[in-house]
């Protein structure tokens, strides 16, 4: 399941959806939240812009790559767009597998690729009232490179 949406998501519902089969032995979930501090300054809220159409395609492509590398029984990727506040949920990636190694690897892989390939952009409003586009992190590209076979 892949969804790009404005509305919030519920951890329990997403977890239960992944837990649907009795062959599942491991579920790994990642949730990204809006932090109150970024790069040393206080953030008051966040706006997420995206490229409608391409975001879904890009996420689907990332999930397909993960499926070709690991045994995945069920997967969910949800990414929110629009206006968000501190502590709000931004992104959810959940993987259900027979064994934990596959679930951990696939979940982290999807996040690392999402961070560098999926067309989302964050604009932060600081406590001062100023707003600025978040800069891409070099570290995210380094992290991603560890998955190159």
């Amino acid at each position: 399941m892949i969804s790009v949406q404005q509305q919030d998501f519920n951890q329990q519902s997403e977890y239960e959806r992944l837990r649907c089969q009795s062959s599942i032995g491991a579920i790994v979930t990642f949730t990204g939240l809006v932090r109150d501090i970024n790069d040393g300054y206080s953030v008051s809220d966040l706006c997420l812009e995206h490229y409608p159409g391409m975001t879904e395609k890009s996420l689907m492509n990332i999930v397909e790559q993960a499926k070709s590398r690991w045994n995945i029984i069920a997967s969910t990727v949800i990414h929110r767009v629009g206006q968000l506040s501190i502590n709000d949920q931004i992104v959810f990636v959940g993987i259900a597998s027979q064994h934990r190694g596959d679930a951990f690897a696939a979940c982290e892989f999807i996040m690392d690729y999402l961070k560098t390939e999926a067309p989302f952009w964050k604009k932060e409003t600081m406590e001062s009232g100023e707003s600025k586009w978040v800069d891409a992190r070099e570290s995210d590209h380094k992290t991603r490179s560890k998955w190159v076979m």
Binding site: G32, L48, H50, Y51, M54, H79, I90, V91, M111, L114, K115, T116, E117, A118, P119, F120, W121, K122, W133, V134, D135, A136, R137
Partner: peptide, 10 residues
């Protein structure tokens, strides 16, 4: 054709 800055989602 789209042009955009490096992505910063997630």
């Amino acid at each position: 054709v789209a042009f955009f800055p490096p992505v910063t989602g997630g």
